[in-house]
């Protein structure tokens, strides 16, 4: 499973990097960025789901 951000939808609410700091980070403007290839390690699945479920812009998806 990988996390993906739709950068067209992201408005920099910052929920993803607050809830899943090992999967997401902020760029210099405060927009969300996926760290590396976004692969979700086994221990990170819950954080990945939380990030997806708390994005106000529905900009995050989890893909296999």
């Amino acid at each position: 499973m990988r996390v993906v951000i739709d950068s067209e939808k992201c408005q920099g609410h910052g929920r993803c990097f607050a809830l899943a700091p090992e999967l997401f980070e902020s760029d210099d403007l405060g927009q969300g960025l996926v760290i590396g290839d976004g692969q979700v390690a086994p221990g990170q699945a819950q954080a990945a789901h939380l990030a997806e479920q708390n994005c106000p812009e529905y900009a995050i998806s989890l893909v296999e």
Binding site: H13, G14, G30, L50, Q53, N54, C55, P56, Y58
Partner: peptide, 23 residues
């Protein structure tokens, strides 16, 4: 509440610029 897609800082291009500061 674990799942909370609230819109307190607005939605779309005018998302509150100061939301990180406010939090």
């Amino acid at each position: 509440r674990a799942v909370n897609r609230h819109a307190a800082f607005g939605l779309g291009i005018h998302r509150c610029l100061g939301s990180n500061l406010a939090r």
